[in-house]
Write a protein that binds this DNA or RNA. Sequence first.
DNA 1: TGTCATGTGGATATGTGTGTCCTGTTTCAT
DNA 2: ATGAAACAGGACACACATATCCACATGACA
Lengths: 140, 140
Amino acid sequence: MFSQTVEYALRAVVHLAIHSPRPQTTSEIAAATQVPTAYLSKVLQGLREKGIVLLQRGVGGGVSLARSPQQLTILDVVSAVDPIPRITTCPLDLKAHGVRLCALHRRMDDALLHMETAFRETTLAELLEDPNPSVPLCDR
Amino acid sequence: MFSQTVEYALRAVVHLAIHSPRPQTTSEIAAATQVPTAYLSKVLQGLREKGIVLLQRGVGGGVSLARSPQQLTILDVVSAVDPIPRITTCPLDLKAHGVRLCALHRRMDDALLHMETAFRETTLAELLEDPNPSVPLCDR
DNA sequence: TGTCATGTGGATATGTGTGTCCTGTTTCAT
DNA sequence: ATGAAACAGGACACACATATCCACATGACA
């Protein structure tokens, strides 16, 4: 349902949010989030292209958030690496349906819409402030 | 988000519900739902193994619903071919999290739960009764 | 200006979902 | 019995997501 890439990207930005605004190296993030380093590198390049993170080479470089955790939502991250495929027209391309979906696809898209909305309404800052005994990415 | 297989399976059972209780051949369903015949055959075999449809060989045979459209939900079909992967334990296997998910995975699973619930509450019969000008799988 | 830390990007490997094809098996009608 | 209709199932093909490796480019700092 959610791709591995989305899962990895979310872990990475949460890690960055926790340490914001200090940049973290790809290796550090990979170790903390239990993601293969080389693959995470690709995922982060994707996030950079979409303006989610900043990548800085050289000594003292690393990865940092392009926006503050207050201004970055789960949806921003999801959309950057693996957008939610909303159903906007009839998948069977039936002329009579067009943009007015049938009951089946209407309900499927409603589910996607609800997910999209829920993700749009949650910022990274809210994730960290959540009164939850389990802290994201932390074992204590 | 939804696999092709789920989309195909849903089209097939909707077609069967429309013509219920008359059995339809795989070829008929494939033509009506615009699904590759050979692949649909595999999908239907999966649905049979999960008790969603009945398959009858020989002349006059074909595919029919194992339950009435009133007793078959979208979730039944989705679960049969590609179950919604609820997040029940911490994907990072953090000991401190265990079953108590962190804010991130809590929200991801909440989205999956909502989808599951919505699909559980809709039967095939309700899809067909929906006062929607676009009739599922029909162009008129 | 040299050196090291760090990200960049291409080539390649692997697994799985999707899709095709062909032969076999079952069932019914005649 | 025979033959046609229809599903069953294995082998194979292909695309894409995931993952790895390595040579290279870049930036900071001494």
